[in-house]
């Protein structure tokens, strides 16, 4: 088993009204290539900050310490618009660039210091689902040339597909743009690829959908489109940040099933961020439990669910109201 990413001593601090708020405190763990890894926590746990840090999408106002080392296979031999040689010339002012070479794989290294103009404040709000879809933009994390491998090597699915899709661009173009930018396809091929992707995410009538606008689709269909855009460039890592929290139970189950199938078919690594321990347990092989910016416990799903070591994990498990739980109402 090789590590896809290894996160060491990661601390992320936001400045707010003069005060420093640590969103992540000295976090370290490895993500294994090809695994389905879940990060769970409640609001303020830092789970979304971690997702953004891994994707290199943190706002410029965030202070980042520690390192994230990547071990990626060589990029596909397409004439990509952003060749790897130009990627590392972003020099973070804070935080070090880590790089590690192993075997024959050329190293690609990154630490997120995203130059994002829009202010994101993942600490805001106490609700477990974040209301804004990450705010990092209308393009699904893909066309940001400043994020060294975002979009091509990392696909990102936000909570709110309405916020991550451009409302005035046909969805076919939004997906084709990712393929055009990162895979160096012609527009014609990129559109063909977009159509295949819409078929893969099981959108009804993909031909018509290519020309449709986001507002013509339901919430679940929009999330399917966002997923199609996220995987358009064939990323190694797919990050789903509360990707099903805004959906109802039935659509949530469909989207989770879709993510599971796509990850298996393409051999992607999945980072699934959720507040719902039961949902995470059904999808992931390993679970990391976060609270107040700290990693409390990391283990296999079976171990976390059946033999949690940390009391807080126990609390989360007990708070889950499954269809098999003891009813609170005594009659």
């Amino acid at each position: 088993m090789t590590a896809l990413a290894s996160i060491r001593n990661l601390t992320v601090t936001y400045r707010r009204d003069g005060a420093e708020v640590a969103a992540l405190k000295n976090v370290g763990f490895d993500i294994t290539a090809g695994e389905r890894f879940a990060i769970i926590g409640e609001s303020g746990s830092g789970k979304s900050t971690l997702a953004l840090a891994i994707a290199g999408l943190l706002p410029a106002t965030a202070r980042i310490e520690g390192r994230i080392d990547w071990l990626l296979r060589p990029p596909p031999m397409f004439d990509a618009k952003a060749p790897p040689s130009v990627l590392p010339d972003i020099s973070p002012s804070e935080g070090e660039i880590g790089s590690s070479a192993a075997g024959s794989f050329p190293p690609a290294s990154v630490i997120g210091e995203g130059r994002d103009e829009s202010a994101i404040s993942p600490l805001e709000g106490e609700m477990s689902g974040r209301t804004e879809g990450g705010a990092t933009g209308r393009q699904p994390a893909s066309l940001r040339d400043h994020a060294p491998i975002g979009g091509r090597d990392i696909g990102f699915i936000f909570q709110d597909p309405s916020a991550s899709l451009d409302p005035v661009m046909p969805i076919g173009k939004q997906i084709a743009e990712v393929a055009y930018t990162h895979l160096g396809l012609s527009w014609r091929d990129a559109y063909a690829k977009a159509k295949t992707l819409l078929e893969r995410v099981r959108l009804p009538d993909p031909d018509a959908a290519l020309c449709a606008f986001p507002h013509q689709l339901s919430g679940g269909q929009k999330q399917r489109v966002a997923i199609a855009a996220a995987i358009a460039a064939g990323p190694k890592l797919l990050i789903a940040d509360e990707a099903t929290s805004a959906l109802d139970t039935i659509v949530q189950a469909e989207i989770v099933g879709l993510i599971r199938r796509l990850v298996a078919e393409d051999g992607m690594t999945l980072l699934f961020i959720s507040h719902d321990i039961a949902l995470a347990a059904e999808l992931a092989e390993r679970i990391a439990v976060f609270r107040h910016g700290e990693l409390l416990e990391l283990g296999s799903t079976a171990q976390i669910v059946n033999a949690p070591r940390h009391a807080y994990t126990r609390v989360l498990l007990d708070a889950h109201l499954g269809l098999d739980a003891e009813p609170l109402l005594r009659t």
Partner: peptide, 13 residues
Amino acid sequence: AAPRLSRIERDVS
């Protein structure tokens, strides 16, 4: 469609 913890296999590896 409801997620269920009891579907997780009991063996702790």
